[in-house]
Design a protein around this nucleic acid. Structure first.
Lengths: 119, 119
DNA sequence: GCCTTAAACAACCAAGAGGTTGATAAAGCA
DNA sequence: TGCTTTATCAACCTCTTGGTTGTTTAAGGC
């Protein structure tokens, strides 16, 4: 459908891995190289490099050149796009669909019945 | 921490699929059955049922019983947990790390020298 | 009772993701 | 010029995921 959908896809996929989430967390404290990012993990640098490629493809990070180093930077703008998407549904009208629920179950004649608290 | 990490993992994994995101969007307008959710898609109901299982495992949706129907409900609380996680890094200190960048640049004259990584 | 509907379960398959090892490229230092 | 560091590329392997078909359970409707 949209290209926006493809970007959402890439971004959520990128965050769906604990290693990549830890990389994001680390980068929020400043840029880092692949070697630095790989250090806390028990996997090879090649594997970390692949993870960074996934993050880069999702535009969650960018890479610059500094001699033979390739510092990775966080791109907070993309993270904002994710919260924007989630907020569409997160803000959702508890009231509205609780009342619909009440109708469907209709087990009680709701005279001013308030929304029940979910368990 | 770890259990929370597992939940984050499940939730982001769940949102990393366009079909599941559309299911979320649909559910934000009220509960629906598997058949209703499957209707707009060109895949089998079994496949949709699996998608719902993934969403349920991530606690993004819940299922109730209504005779032989199993209406699926959105769980906005879990979505909030996701934005909470992202906000940790989204709010990130552009200022802070821009200034850090500036410091590193200025440490060796202005032009030509690139910033080195902190860590 | 019998038949339909709603939905889950089970086995299976193709494709992709995460990981490895090994080789390669580019930049800096001896 | 080598040699080291940094990081990517290229195969390859294994496990998971998204999908299928077929069967089974559960609840109503006739």
């Amino acid at each position: 459908m949209d290209s926006n959908d493809a970007l959402l896809d890439a971004a959520f996929t990128a965050l769906a891995d604990p290693v990549r989430r830890r990389i994001i967390a680390r980068l929020s404290r400043g840029p880092a190289t692949v070697n630095e990012l790989a250090e806390p993990f028990a996997i090879t640098k090649q594997a970390v490099s692949k993870h960074i490629q996934v993050l880069e493809q999702a535009q969650l990070v960018t890479r610059t050149r500094d001699a033979q180093r390739r510092p990775v930077h966080l791109n907070p703008a993309r993270l904002e796009a994710l919260t924007a998407w989630i907020d569409q549904y997160r803000l959702v009208r508890e009231g509205q669909f609780r009342s619909l629920d009440a109708v469907l179950h209709s087990s009680a004649a709701a005279s001013g019945t308030q929304a029940k608290d979910p368990s």
